Simulated assay, not measured.
Amino acid sequence: MAKVLVLYYSSYGHVESMAEAVAQGAREGGAEVTIMRVPETAPAQVVAAAHFKVDQQAPVATVEDLPNYDAIILGAPTRYGRIPAQMAAFLDQTGPLWARGALNGKIGAAFTSTASQHGGQETTLFSIITNLLHLGLTIVGLPYGFQGQLRLDEITGGSPYGATTIAGGRGERPASANELDGARYQGKLVAELAAKVFG
């Protein structure tokens, strides 16, 4: 059974809910799935003033957890079209893993959340994917086999580079059913590929 890590950062819970859907899909794909989050690096007073969601159930990961998995699916919200400092700080610690090739040949994928439809979804996905490629992972996107990303009857996230959600400028919009379906689809795809490679 392939082992899949869904690793995320979420300020307000949007990426957290996507992570849960990704994990559900990976379990449907036959994988053993662990959900973890990266450490919060913002000062406590900033977290409190900004009303970050602090009651997240996922345990905090360390960099040395990563080699224990066959596939790693990273999720983070956008910050000006790139990953937030919390995820960047975590990934910046992976140099020793890179140096020893600890993640070479593993499966990787990305998902994200933005405030608006054109708020940097694809550039944020690419900023995650770039890190995964440097670490030696093979990337799985969200192919057009998931037809939900082609919908025109509703506002929806989704990109061939990964599952996405649109949170709204004040974080008022939860992930839609279609966006969660996309996250599950991607998670299942990663699990099925990991089973073929590592099963």
Rank of each mutant, 00 (worst) to 15 (best):
residue 138 T to V: 14
residue 106 K to D: 04
residue 120 G to D: 03
residue 193 L to E: 11
residue 17 S to R: 10
residue 77 P to Y: 01
residue 129 I to E: 12
residue 27 R to G: 10
residue 28 E to I: 08
residue 183 A to T: 06
residue 82 R to L: 01
residue 85 A to R: 10
residue 47 V to R: 14
residue 43 P to G: 10
residue 182 G to I: 02
residue 146 F to K: 02
residue 119 G to N: 05
residue 123 T to P: 04
residue 70 D to Q: 13
residue 194 A to I: 00
residue 62 T to A: 14
residue 127 S to Y: 01
residue 140 V to N: 09
residue 27 R to I: 11
residue 43 P to V: 04
residue 88 A to N: 08
residue 39 P to G: 07
residue 22 V to H: 08
residue 132 L to R: 06
residue 27 R to L: 05
residue 93 Q to H: 12
residue 72 I to L: 13
residue 107 I to N: 08
residue 52 F to K: 15
residue 111 F to M: 08
residue 47 V to L: 12
residue 46 V to Y: 11
residue 197 V to Q: 04
residue 182 G to K: 02
residue 4 V to H: 02
residue 99 A to S: 14
residue 90 F to R: 05
residue 131 N to F: 08
residue 10 S to K: 07
residue 136 G to T: 04
residue 101 G to H: 00
residue 1 M to D: 11
residue 97 L to N: 08
residue 12 Y to E: 10
residue 153 D to A: 08
residue 61 A to Q: 06
residue 136 G to W: 02
residue 63 V to K: 06
residue 55 D to I: 03
residue 25 G to C: 05
residue 149 Q to V: 03
residue 189 L to Q: 14
residue 139 I to T: 08
residue 30 G to C: 05
residue 24 Q to K: 10
residue 93 Q to S: 14
residue 72 I to S: 05
residue 69 Y to S: 07
residue 113 S to Y: 05
residue 199 G to V: 09
residue 169 G to Y: 02
residue 93 Q to T: 11
residue 114 T to Q: 04
residue 110 A to Q: 02
residue 10 S to L: 07
residue 143 P to D: 15
residue 70 D to C: 08
residue 54 V to K: 14
residue 96 P to N: 14
residue 35 I to D: 05
residue 190 V to W: 00
residue 87 M to I: 03
residue 84 P to V: 15
residue 118 H to N: 14
residue 24 Q to T: 06
residue 21 A to V: 06
residue 138 T to D: 10
residue 165 T to L: 11
residue 130 T to N: 12
